[in-house]
Design a protein around this nucleic acid. Sequence first.
DNA 1: TTGGAATCGTCTGTTTCAGACTGTCCAGAA
DNA 2: TTCTGGACAGTCTGAAACAGACGATTCCAA
Lengths: 194, 194
Amino acid sequence: MSSVRLSTTSYVVLGMIALRGPSTPYDLKRAIGRSVGYFWSFPHAQLYSEPKRLEDAGLLELEEEQHGRRRKLYTITTEGETALRTWLSEPVNAHFELRDVAEIKLFFNELATPEDVARLASGQIEQHERRIAEYESMQKRYSDIDDVASRMVTLELGLGMERAALSFWRDVAGRVERGEFPAPPAREAARRAR
Amino acid sequence: MSSVRLSTTSYVVLGMIALRGPSTPYDLKRAIGRSVGYFWSFPHAQLYSEPKRLEDAGLLELEEEQHGRRRKLYTITTEGETALRTWLSEPVNAHFELRDVAEIKLFFNELATPEDVARLASGQIEQHERRIAEYESMQKRYSDIDDVASRMVTLELGLGMERAALSFWRDVAGRVERGEFPAPPAREAARRAR
DNA sequence: TTGGAATCGTCTGTTTCAGACTGTCCAGAA
DNA sequence: TTCTGGACAGTCTGAAACAGACGATTCCAA
């Protein structure tokens, strides 16, 4: 019931419980893994500690505790719903954050060989194609479930991002083939000839 | 010279010094802020501790230490270059990671009002437009500097992502106007009528 | 020459993190 | 029936990452 600091992760937990109803940490883990986890990931261990914090803050309630596997069922309280709604209505000031190792490696292409870049690009193409297929099948699977439709909007952004990335890496692959990423020695020569 | 574990951040530092030549932490901070920082950000304090780690590992060398502001100039060693090149040639197994608060809020739209969603969308549209303008001006500014051209490829992915996001949020804004994100009560009714 | 802004560096306590580890449950093989 | 493996569920730990306050230095302009 005190003033703990709530992170985005806290609200993800709160929101998930609000949407799904009473949930155990493991329920949350799976539900998040299939949805929100695509644009806000965190280690699953947090799903065992975070609800405890939220309970201390009076935003969740521990519904029941079974024996055996002693699972904990959390329910959202009225205060929790209020906190969640307040957060949802607040403006988002942070820009999205992208963390992309492939992109870094491409940035440093001058220090690598054209073969490295080619491999990088083809690996990325494969990855993004796979992810696109995954998203598309999710989209198909859920398109007829009315209940979930409004959650599935976000899939479209994922898909848009993936397609942008895919076409970018295809372009990179083409450029490599055309010799636009010269090996270090050629690069030196080009620089001198400038 | 020991076997410290190198993170992506370590390689960003290493790579930046390899590209720019001898650099101080502050140099790195600024260079990263203008480039690689857009897809791999971290607190600037790390740029003071990380080089030390890399020096201990024998991958950087402390070139000179001045008095007054006692800046530290780091240079990459041959071992450092080798480590970097090795890393650059290794495949990237991780998929890029997106952390987007706006997206989460959209996912939870069922718990918010249509007005919330509308505000969210228009805020995002603004943000992405601004970022696009920023990227485009960077692109213009650097397009004639031959030296930097191959680093600037990555800008195109940034731009592609931003454009995908922008068009997504414009679409969302349109849907809200068309009443496709009903307020909670209407939503209940719709569910019952199903 | 002085004081305010921009620059540069350090420090601190807290979160987050990966991932190893433990325990539980169930199904089918022996 | 007992055994065994694998999926399921939860806990723990040390190391990194983190935000952001703070302190010091330099520069410039009034």
